[in-house]
Design a protein around this nucleic acid. Structure first.
Lengths: 445, 445
DNA sequence: AAATTTGTCTATTTACATTTC
DNA sequence: GGAAATGTAAATAGACAAATT
């Protein structure tokens, strides 16, 4: 029996523990999940301290702890020693960002769609491929790790992103997201934590959530993770890895400075972090900076995806995997794909070797510059982030509106954009402290 | 201090608990893992009872329990109340079965390779595709769930496997393994258990292991899971799902009877099991039996992969997902693939609609009959399982040899085959009881 | 700067269920 | 068929460390 009466004590959550069929901890977890999802406990709500709740329900402290842990694993709440437990800020937000495929009349500016006419360059190469005498062989089982010829082509492409690597280290995935999920599944385990930018690519959020891996927002300064922030996360959150997009960061368009790249590389080595370097947009740079991977090749998994820079229908990505991780990642990719489509791999290798990829890259940059000029014409009075070659924009909203509100207004006006809230990573530990203002993403078609 | 002296007491494992830096349970788990992997505790070894070990090490029973649980999760050991804890039988076996891609002189009869010349039929269709005016559009982002046209084609194909379904229920995956992994990741969670045949497709073993999902071998009779076995596994192992290959089971070639299909469907409904029905070989049957899915459509995820029946290079599978699972599975597939290659999806839909797939199927059956006649010529004196249309064989070995030994002898003679040991699922709870003899798989090229 | 708040983690206690003999 | 063996799981206790005030 609880010693104190809680009738007059303010508790944000007072579950009623009746008709127990399941264990206490499971029941509490279920009730908490339900009440959060039902909106009874809106995002940001501070839950009662575990001890208070234990006392109130007349159960042991650890029982509450265990219940909370289950909900934390599901991304519903976030807890910090000394501060308390809060309902996550992104509960209820639809995290998977599916573009409108012409199904409605809404103009889709939320998802990043590379320009389409360039696909004809690939189609043209494909036409040459099909008449080759051994074309039918591309429908055999492919080698899980790709052929040497394909890997050499990958090296050639990656070199244009200022990263000199070796065919031995190349693995093939069915696109960037496929590579990310394989890395998460193969090199991390449920419960592990990975540091990310506070605002990041939603694909890693959903993949991590599915695999029971938690994302932790790393403190930033000038749009880049800080050394203090990283050290703190290593020490206090025990992060096992890092996920970063150094070039044309999605969604902020930011390109990371050389100094920060070196700092991350240094800490990755020192703290034994597994760095996932998503080089998804790197090749859009005319003169890309050297990647983090070049400064810490043995700690970084470098993902060179073709969807954004060459073509979205080419479901292919090259992963540069250091020796220590190669075997595990290769196994994970095998578990997920068996192998990539041999035809895709051959097609990609072909367009790289024939220089088609270079042509596409140049044209894509030129097209982006044109398009971005148009954006500037219309939104010149606002702060619009993004280098000329970046294929999407980040609109900084005026102080008097929120991203969410703007997204809704735009939608009602027939335009889909995605607000910063959709990109928030990890649970918001200090909701009141995260003063990164409100942004709204605006992408180029 | 332990009360009894254990010097004269026979204990199969006596770890030395010194220099403790990590917690006790973690240290014990690590030591156990090391000793198993080093071969000090060979497969089948009975570990000391948890209480004995706790007493010996002077720690609490639950501490041992927790340590063992970690190793069990990794698939290293298996424990049963009342019987004890045993080292798993497949420790140290290389579980990923990679075919020799002509890298050595070994004749590869281990992996299942569909006959290759039929790929030219697909190549021919591809040649028609590339000249279509909108061919370049296939390099755009594909719709994650596929187009209606593609789903209608899927329905058409699946109908030939005696399963009438609906485009609404179709999801697209990048091959059968991709579908399996997506289902495991999206509908199960780490620690969940899934029932399988005692000997099963290795791809589910490695995928489940990667995701922390445990496989439990279901008791069989005449090569089919029994009702008692299933009920037992539901009640005592708390299995959440089932993975089955009803047609031309890999590796035993067995085709499940109608009665067992109905029984499984009935129990799936009654026990709320999620059934993964791998219809990988179903279309090889000239008159396929109705699948389990047709008897319990709301509990079965039916996977129709094209690799074995149409072409391995077509990295595509159709999944029939009932309403209740569709959203989660769709999200999982999105997390893993974003979308399948639009070109692959279109190609598959095309060859189905044009009847190319029918031609291929017929030719494949005819070719199999021929090849299997040759197998019979050479191995007529032995028991070789498999219907004429099955594209692989299962050789029952004489009593005086083991699968492992035969595999090794074959390899030294220049032929790669895979022995039954490689297909064993779950941990061997009763190693001495599993009297399914020793088989050796022999596959057709 | 010290005391307090608060969550985390390991180990423990206890009850229980199944298998074996 | 009943006692013993054996693993499982929930709840609890207590020490600890970080964040707050």
């Amino acid at each position: 029996m609880p010693f104190n009466s809680f009738d007059n004590y303010p508790m944000s959550w007072k579950p009623a523990l009746k008709n127990l069929t399941a264990p206490i901890y499971a029941t509490i977890a279920e009730m908490l999940e339900k009440d959060i999802k039902d909106g009874l406990l809106p995002p940001g709500t501070k839950l009662p301290p575990q001890r208070e709740l234990a006392d109130y329900l007349d159960v042991n402290l650890s029982t509450i702890s265990k219940a909370f842990k289950i909900c934390e694993q599901k991304g519903l709440i976030g807890a910090t020693v000394g501060r308390g437990t809060y309902v996550s800020s992104d509960v209820g937000v639809n995290k998977i960002l599916l573009p409108n495929h012409g199904l409605s009349n809404v103009i889709e500016l939320g998802s990043i769609f590379p320009e389409n006419t360039l696909n004809n360059e690939i189609a043209a190469y494909m036409k040459k491929m099909v008449v080759e005498p051994n074309f039918g062989d591309l429908f055999r089982y492919g080698h899980p790790e790709g052929t040497m010829w394909q890997k050499v082509a990958a090296v050639k492409l990656i070199e244009k992103a200022s990263f000199k690597t070796d065919p031995q280290e190349i693995l093939l995935a069915s696109g960037g997201q496929n590579a990310i999920t394989a890395i998460l599944a193969g090199l991390f385990k449920p419960g592990d934590k990975i540091g990310t930018d506070p605002v990041t690519y939603p694909g890693i959020k959903t993949a991590a959530n599915m695999l029971g891996i938690q994302l932790v927002a790393i403190q930033q300064k000038n749009n880049e993770v800080t050394e203090e922030g990283l050290i703190y996360a290593c020490k206090n959150e025990n992060i096992k890895g890092l996920y970063l997009i150094p070039d044309f960061h999605n969604p902020t368009t930011h390109t990371m400075s050389i100094d920060t790249r070196k700092m991350v590389a240094y800490l990755a080595q020192k703290e034994d972090l597994i760095v996932i370097e998503d080089a998804i947009h790197s090749l859009l740079h005319e003169n890309p900076l050297a990647p983090i991977a070049s400064y810490a090749p043995e700690r970084v998994l470098y993902i060179c995806s073709l969807s954004k820079v060459i073509s979205p229908g080419l479901r292919l990505a090259f992963v540069v995997a250091p020796e220590v991780f190669k075997k595990k990642l290769s196994a994970a990719l095998y578990n997920i794909n068996i192998s990539v489509s041999p035809m895709m791999a051959e097609l990609a290798a072909g367009i790289i070797n024939e220089g088609v990829s270079d042509t596409i890259l140049e044209k894509r940059r030129a097209y982006s510059r044109e398009q971005n000029l148009i954006v500037s014409q219309y939104l010149g009075d606002y702060k619009v982030n993004g280098a000329p070659e970046c294929i999407f924009r980040w609109l900084v909203l005026p102080d008097d509106t929120t991203g969410k509100a703007f997204e809704l207004r735009a939608y009602h006006a027939g335009v889909q954009v995605y607000a910063s809230e959709r990109f928030c990573s990890g649970y918001s530990k200090t909701p009141e402290r995260r003063k990164n203002g409100y942004y709204c993403s605006r992408k180029q078609r």
